[in-house]
Design a protein around this nucleic acid. Structure first.
Length: 367
DNA sequence: AAGTCGGGGCG
DNA sequence: CGCCCAGACTT
């Protein structure tokens, strides 16, 4: 069975499909109404993001944006508002760009062609396959982290990354059935997440593929799938940044991130890479004044996938009028009031800082 | 082929 | 703290 041939492929697929249909499946928001639009949004959100994390974001997003036209009629700030906290914000930009193309080139009707949707930003081979198989039951394979792990273990694959990757695509391409590709792909992913566990040892006695699995009943010592999308020494680089938190009547001064790759399009506190830079800025806009309250807050650690960021927040509560700074704001930033009326994207650590400050000042008031 | 891109959750 | 998550894109 480990040797692939026509018959064994069919047995493999049938076992996965049977297993999927025979067990109680959790119902997910995007499988209730499997419109290609819904599945597209869900698949983009699910890239490198857990199902349980995605669910509330997905529900909010499709409620506000029920179709591609509603996305095009909105703007990037509002889309990033609904994406705030999910991470990988380029995905939100990709959704906007794709929606724009679908309206412009396809009259707002999401195309069902593999090559076409693969050409949209943020949709690679696996996501294109997931969209077309889950929404339309078209026979395309999916190769995500779960499917990878199941296949690597079942066939006992090892070697260099690029070779395995090629081999895996060749395998799923032959395994995906002509009919029931939807069930098969979802079955493979669920097998990976529920049975063929990544960290804990797999529950082989519940696996429909156990009998012929190369790695059956393996004792999991070291995870093997990390070679794919996790790098070693991921926190090698450490960076420090000064954040200036300006507060005026319960409003926070936020600047839009215009360049760079991290958090582009989102709003953050003004950042400085030295205390001197920060001081210069304060002096330039005459922000240090006896009545202004200056507090150095406790540093915060924020880990990205490749950088560990140490944030040094300086909080200044402005109690005087400052016309020079007000002019500067109109051009370069906004006063944000946390009521939710201003629909903009805000990174998690920035939002957490604001919440912490508001809660602290509220708790002080109540005493 | 390797690096980049967030944030959360779990052991 | 290390690893993982319905990966895609750039360099």
């Amino acid at each position: 069975m480990n040797d692939m041939n026509d018959k064994n492929e069919k047995i493999f697929s049938r076992r996965v499909v049977q297993w999927y249909l025979s067990t109680k499946r959790r119902s997910l928001p995007w499988t209730q109404n499997r419109s290609i639009y819904n599945v597209w949004i869900s698949e983009i959100m699910l890239q490198q993001t857990r199902v349980s994390t995605v669910i509330p974001y997905y529900n909010r997003f499709v409620k506000r944006f029920p179709n591609v036209q509603s996305i095009v009629d909105s703007n990037m700030d509002e889309i990033l508002y609904y994406w705030s906290g999910l991470g990988y914000y380029a995905r939100a930009r990709n959704i906007y760009e794709t929606a724009r193309r679908v309206v412009k080139d396809f009259k707002g009707v999401f195309p069902l062609d593999f090559q076409t949707i693969s050409s949209f930003p943020g949709i690679g081979r696996s996501t294109a396959g997931a969209i077309l198989s889950i929404s339309e039951n078209l026979s395309f394979p999916v190769l995500d982290g779960n499917v990878r792990r199941v296949l690597i273990r079942f066939f006992g694959l090892k070697g260099i990354k690029s070779q395995i990757e090629k081999e895996l695509w060749s395998i799923v391409d032959r395994l995906v059935p002509k009919v029931d590709s939807r069930i098969f792909n979802q079955g493979m992913m669920d097998l990976g997440s529920e049975i063929c566990l990544p960290l804990k040892s797999p529950i082989c006695q519940d696996c429909p593929l156990e009998k012929d699995c190369f790695s059956r009943n393996m004792k999991l010592i070291k995870p093997e799938s990390s070679i794919f999308h996790d790098r070693k020494n991921r926190y090698l680089k450490e960076k420090e940044v000064q954040l200036l938190i300006l507060i005026k009547k319960d409003r926070f001064f936020l600047k839009k991130v215009l360049k760079g790759r991290i958090w582009r399009g989102l709003y953050i506190f003004p950042e400085f890479y030295s205390t001197d830079q920060l001081r210069l800025f304060l002096k330039k806009f005459d922000l240090i004044y006896p009545k202004d309250q200056i507090i150095k807050m406790k540093p915060i650690l924020h880990s990205f996938s490749h950088i560990k960021l140490k944030i040094f927040p300086t909080k200044i509560t402005i109690r005087k009028r400052n016309d020079q700074f007000s002019e500067h704001i109109k051009k370069h930033g906004i006063w944000y009031d946390m009521s939710g009326k201003q629909k903009i994207g805000i990174p998690k650590p920035i939002y957490s800082l604001m919440k912490e400050i508001i809660n602290f000042s509220n708790s002080k008031k109540s005493f």
